[in-house]
Write a protein that binds this DNA or RNA. Structure first.
Ligand SMILES: [Zn+2]
Ligand SMILES: [Zn+2]
Ligand SMILES: [Zn+2]
Ligand SMILES: [Zn+2]
Lengths: 164, 164
DNA sequence: CAGAGATTGGTATAATATAACAGCACGTCA
DNA sequence: TGACGTGCTGTTATATTATACCAATCTCTG
């Protein structure tokens, strides 16, 4: 899925982010219905919070925000929700940041790559078959069978680098 | 640098690992002399411990081993040593494991990729210009300027997958 | 309704990492 | 020589991220 508001990969400040959120939630409902999974209120709320913007969010930030909802939530609550959402392919964990982002391609299984702006912290999820193939090929040449890839590229997004 | 004892990328159980260690330590001495850095006893010892095998090792494991040396070390000691070694390009951090491995190409600056066996936990450091280029190219196509790459492929090494 | 399995609430603790400051080692230069 | 600066180490304390575990509740199904 391209970004909802523009044809650019990187969301600009002016984009209609409410639409990003509602699209993501609707896709989550679909996925869960299709797979027989239960998008309970907590899980739905955590997903909504993860999608509050295009930046990765830490588990304890989510926890604070959940607590502000009135219920005083404990760590296992948010980690369980995140675990479920990851399992359902609705959320990804960014290993280099110990943080989480909403999945931009929740409608199908995929291996993806992340572009992480070190300035504005925006994250974009790439889904390049090309990269995936090339990684698998190089690994296979050494007899290694890839099961999971974690590809996280840190740098400057178009908005944040000087050439702009 | 290929693995010292064989022409294979993946070290086998029989290889002369003492040579891996001494090669790594000698290379570290060289690097530090060349760059005017100080490979102090603690740093040298931590590097030696990181190289105890080809598996990533956690900071607190290192701490335990340091403590067994007689000195009762505290976390900052090992984290400071690791920070130095990373800065000197002698050690890499594996983000998906919160753990550290010795660098296999300490003699030159590089961006690398890791193959991590989920069974035996052996890690091999790839230095593929091909992959680096392809990642940079895809990112650039979206206007993103890559500064750091973290590429960690988890799967089965040749020793551990069924085809073997 | 009964029972199984999934989900949640809650306590406690584990595992990883850093802040902050004091003392020391060692070279430099007056 | 001795005062100083810089970098390294020791130490205490704390921050941050994540999980183990058990009890209570909910949901679905038969
Ligand atoms: Zn995704
Ligand atoms: Zn940016
Ligand atoms: Zn070896
Ligand atoms: Zn390396």
């Amino acid at each position: 899925m391209k970004h909802a508001a523009t044809s650019e990969a990187f969301p600009d400040a002016a984009h209609d982010h409410a639409e990003c959120i509602s699209t993501a939630l609707a896709a989550a409902e679909d996925t869960c219905r299709r797979e027989g999974l239960r998008l309970t209120p907590i899980r739905r709320r955590v997903l909504e919070l993860v999608w509050q913007n295009h930046r990765p969010v830490g588990a304890y930030d989510l926890l604070d925000q959940l607590s502000r909802d009135g219920k005083r939530a404990m760590p296992p609550t948010v980690y369980r929700a995140l675990e479920f959402l990851q399992g359902a392919g609705l959320v990804h964990r960014i290993a280099t940041l110990n943080a989480f982002v909403g999945c931009s391609h929740p409608d199908h299984a995929h291996q993806c790559q992340f572009l992480i702006c070190s300035d504005c912290r925006t994250v974009v999820e790439l889904e390049s078959e090309n990269i995936g193939r090339s990684l698998k090929r190089e690994a296979a040449a050494l007899g290694f069978q890839v099961r999971e890839q974690s590809v996280e590229l840190t740098g400057l997004c178009p908005e944040c680098h000087p050439a702009h």
